[in-house]
Design a protein around this nucleic acid. Structure first.
Lengths: 137, 137
DNA sequence: ATAAACCTTAGAGATTACTCTAAGTCAAGT
DNA sequence: ACTTGACTTAGAGTAATCTCTAAGGTTTAT
């Protein structure tokens, strides 16, 4: 155990491995204000707590459901403004759930579209196999 | 009806309106080889057929399910290579369906995660409303 | 015949989200 | 003491996907 290890915190390299996010990206997120609670030691080295890791999960969730970093920052800032923004934050999350619902419906629609295309191509394939066509159809 | 209208084709501006894609983007797609069948008149003006519009739907489908333009071009090129690539194209579409399935599962996971977060925030809200906290929690 | 409203091109610029480089600091191990 | 390896910063570079500009051509209506 390194001398610098303390209070159950881990450094950026360890976070990178655990969360499969490059240290570059983590620093970038920090620079963009997405990780305001990450503490620094006297050398400036970041020390991530479990809470910070949970934040990363939340950021990943919002990002992968279509929110860009600027919008995520609004949520982060809102969180650190405290209890007065609770209702706004709950609303924001509910709207994001609506986004997810739409995404799922959209993806299902695309699934159907590809199914239809596969059917068309399969018919073409059978037609070719039966020698009904000598040229490209 | 304009003199140039013929054979049920429409120009890029009309496609733009109908498909809600900017003419810039359509030209960009064409430049990238995603629209190889669009015909030109003697002035170089593009004339889109119904088949081209269907292609645009397919491109949109593949793009919005996570495929990048380079990968889409592989599919487009493959299509214009004719019947010898039918099996490969069907496989590609089936793999894309797998991608969609994963996307939907992932999105549902994020939905759950946000639900959990909303629960936490709602409890915080109730706590604040009951005056159990004077400071930011 | 001239204006309006289209279309064309090549290539520059914008945006987002990284990704990396250079130069340097610090702590641990031998 | 020195090497190794992890960390730091500011800022440059990259990739993908547009998005626009400048300069110009064609068609249609008045």
């Amino acid at each position: 155990m390194k001398k610098s290890d303390q209070n159950n915190t881990i450094t950026i390299g360890q976070v990178s491995k655990i969360k499969q996010i490059s240290a570059y990206t983590l620093r970038y997120y920090d620079k963009q204000g997405l990780l305001p609670k990450v503490i620094r030691d006297k050398n400036g080295t970041r020390h991530f707590t479990n809470e910070d890791l949970q934040w990363l999960d939340m950021i990943k969730c919002l990002k992968n459901t279509g929110m860009n970093l600027e919008e995520i920052k609004v949520f982060v800032d809102s969180t650190y403004q405290g209890a007065t923004t609770l209702v706004a934050r709950i609303d924001l999350l509910k709207r994001q759930q609506d986004v997810i619902k739409e995404t799922i419906l959209e993806q299902q629609k695309y699934m159907d579209q590809i199914n239809a295309k596969i059917d068309v191509l399969n018919k073409e394939l059978i037609s070719v196999e039966n020698g009904k066509s000598e040229t490209n159809k």
